[in-house]
Structure formats: C-alpha cells, structure tokens
C-alpha cells in the first residue's frame, strides 16, 4: 500500500518536474496525489502558468501562434 503523500511534498515534486524528469515512483505518487487533492491540482496549474511567463515576453506580438505561446 502506497502511503498517501502530503501536499507539501507534492508541491516539491510539482516544482521539480518542471526542471528535471521525475523517477517512476515520484511520477506515480504525484499523479495519485493530484487525483485526490483539488488544491494541489490548482497549485500544479499555477506552477504551469509561472513556467510559461517567459514565453509571453519574447513571443511575437502578431505571431502566427506556431510557437504555442500566443500573446494577448
């Protein structure tokens, strides 16, 4: 039986996954935790937003959106 990971530890993995590949065990326990914890799902989405802010500086203002980073 896998011990349920705590939110604080889950956020560590949510962050690390943006910088390095997670191990299999880490991936599984993170996925399990996210499946059961709504605040952590929100946190995960917020980390993704932060991970994409850089693209919104140097994207072309009238780009053809081919770089997946459309600007307002």
């Amino acid at each position: 039986m896998i011990k349920m990971m705590l939110c604080r530890e889950a956020t560590r993995l949510m962050s690390k996954r943006l910088d390095a590949p997670l191990g299999l065990g880490e991936r599984l326990s993170l996925r399990l935790h996210l499946g059961m914890c709504r605040p952590c799902r929100h946190c995960n989405a917020q980390f993704d937003v932060l991970h994409r802010v850089g693209h919104h500086f140097d994207a072309e203002p009238n780009a053809d959106k081919s770089d997946n980073a459309p600007r307002s």
């Binding site: 705590l6 939110c7 604080r8 993704d48």
Partner: peptide, 17 residues
Amino acid sequence: SGHWQVAARPSDWGDPE
C-alpha cells in the same frame, strides 16, 4: 501535518490564456 493551511489553499486561476 503537511496539508495546506485553509487560508492558503490554492484556488482556481481560470483559463491560463
């Protein structure tokens, strides 16, 4: 305990775009 503080629980920011 490692769980979110109630007041600090992340909420939905909505559509990233």
